[in-house]
Design a binder for these strands. Structure first.
Length: 479
RNA sequence: GGCGACGUAGCCAAGUGGUAAGGCAGGGCUCUGCAAAAGCCCCAUUCGGCAGUUCGAAUCUGCCCGUCGCCUCCA
């Protein structure tokens, strides 16, 4: 199997991936801030990291995947104040919805899912260390990170501090020394959730410090760095820049993460799908309208790092593609799945090669779709393995022909279509269809094509599609 | 203003120096009494525009046009 190459934001280059520890990969991905409903854009990002996990696992690595939950932030506190609800009830509700959407999409569970409010001691320890080393200072409203104390600030996002300062401004209620300085700890105003922090003052952590503290606690207690840090492209600045500024001065051997991976954002109507713009359909609603596997499939033709425009048309195309995959699966279902020798494989090596080339899912999917399987044991093995790598896992329902609900008033409708040609006597819909088909079969035997077509058209107007074959006539509910 | 991404068929898109993947839509054929289903086949002399480098450019360079993102909470 070839090398895995990934585009590293930190070095701005495509690099061969080499884990820091033999056969082991540690990944930290910035998770959700559940202060509002999650949308498809969030899903795109997490779906990508799910595929990366699958590939790394397939390549034989032991993967540790950590994805945090920012369960405390200004937005949820503000919402609580406006609605009178408990802020934690808001956050828990949105997060539960998100988790269930992820399950429906077939995203693997993280190995650890740290909540910011469960890591307050670790966060405070890091803030203390930063203050001791002159990287942070406390003022009236909170504790801030002093950006000027970290010479590498701006390296990840390719920005220079002078230009940033020119464009930045300090909000009236902030008391920091420099516009670029950011909050590590916010002192609580009356009624706000708070945690004790001696001797500085009760309050809550800032967003950036939680990721530094939790990735350190869970992936890199030695301070020598972990393998992959990921998130959406909108997190590069300032979030990831700030994480580096917080973590690296305290580390024995920077960098904080060897590879930084960023997923491209999702547009809707040509604009970034986002909470603030409000141009999105909640993930939960979208998944109620569409097959989650088709939703997953929709992301595969576009490179993960590129901006992608979401349309209902692309989803419709995915539904067709999914039906094709199911059909192939059904054709192969009767053969035994047996792992072929490495040199006998015809599909998997192509899929692997595509994914190893900076996660080129478009080519991987194209290989799968243009591959015409011979129904053999190893074809089934390779097909199922390829599907798993692309995150589309067959379910028992894949084995069934698609069946839709019969309209309840079908007998009556069919009777009115047929008039006195055939008496249906208000029988069950299935029986009514069977009688109509039997009547048509008799007409066909007499080469009475007019009667035959009349019956077929009547059934069609009732939403029943007919298929003639050597074995007889079958019907399905038209989609 | 700074930094960055993108512009490939009707639509979604892959391809980053060697002569345009794949999907959707569309069209044709086989089969069929006719259909349906299935299978097979066709569908960009051309990659936003102009100039340049090169034996060779969608791919590299320069300029121009257009779209979007980050620079403030955001996957």
């Amino acid at each position: 199997m070839g090398d895995l190459n990934l585009y590293n934001t930190r070095t701005r280059a495509l690099e061969r991936f080499v884990p820091l520890r033999e056969r082991q990969v540690r990944i930290y991905v910035c998770g959700l801030t559940p202060s509002a409903q999650a949308h498809l854009g969030h899903a795109r990002s997490f779906l990508f990291f799910d595929l990366l996990r699958r590939l790394l696992t397939h390549l034989g690595y032991a993967v540790t995947y950590v994805q945090n939950v920012t369960d405390i932030d200004d937005r949820s506190i503000n919402r609580a104040r406006e609605t009178g609800e408990d802020w934690y009830a808001i956050v828990s509700g949105y997060y539960a919805d998100f988790k269930s959407a992820m399950r429906r999409l077939g995203v693997m569970e993280p190995d650890a899912e740290p909540y910011a409010t469960k890591f307050i001691p670790q966060i405070q320890a890091m803030i203390r260390a930063l203050i001791e080393r002159g990287h942070a200072y406390a003022v009236e409203d909170g504790i801030y990170y002093r950006v000027s104390s970290f010479p590498d600030y701006g390296k990840l996002s390719n920005r220079n501090v002078e230009e940033l300062q020119a464009g930045a401004r300090i909000d009236v209620d902030e008391h920091k020394d420099d516009p670029l300085d950011f909050a590590l700890w916010k002192f609580a105003k009356p009624g706000e959730p708070k945690w004790a922090f001696e001797p500085y003052g009760d309050g809550r952590p800032g967003w950036h410090i939680e990721c530094s503290a939790m990735s350190h606690a869970l992936l890199d207690p030695e301070g020598v760095g972990f393998d992959i840090h990921g998130g959406g492209a909108d997190l590069i600045f300032p979030h990831h820049e700030n994480e580096i500024a917080q973590s690296e001065p305290l580390m024995a051997h920077p960098p904080m993460a060897n590879v930084w991976l960023h997923g491209g954002l999702l547009n809707f109507d040509g604009r970034k799908m986002s909470k603030s713009l409000g141009n999105f359909e909640p993930l939960t609603d979208l998944l109620a309208r569409h097959d989650p596997q088709a939703v997953r499939l929709t992301f595969l033709p576009t490179g993960y790092s590129k901006v992608m425009n979401f349309t209902e048309e692309s989803l419709a195309a995915s539904n067709v593609t999914l039906a094709r995959l199911k059909k192939t699966y059904r054709r192969l279902a009767t053969v035994e799945a047996r792992e072929p020798a490495a040199d006998a494989r015809v599909l998997l090596p192509k899929v692997e090669a595509a994914l190893c080339n900076d996660m080129n899912t478009a080519v991987a999917l194209a290989e799968l779709l243009s591959w015409a399987p011979e129904p053999s044991a190893h074809a089934r093995y390779e097909f199922e393995r390829a599907l798993w790598l692309l995150g589309i896992e067959p379910t028992p329902a894949w084995l069934e022909e698609p069946k839709l609900e019969l309209p309840s008033d079908l007998t009556a409708r069919l009777q009115s279509e047929l008039g006195d040609e055939l008496a249906l006597d208000g029988v069950a819909p299935e029986e009514a269809i069977a009688r109509a088909i039997a009547h048509r079969t008799a007409a066909r035997a007499n080469k009475d094509w007019a009667a035959s077509d009349r019956l077929r058209d009547a059934l069609a107007r009732c939403g029943i599609a007919i298929k003639d074959s050597k074995e007889g006539t079958t019907w399905t509910v038209a989609g």
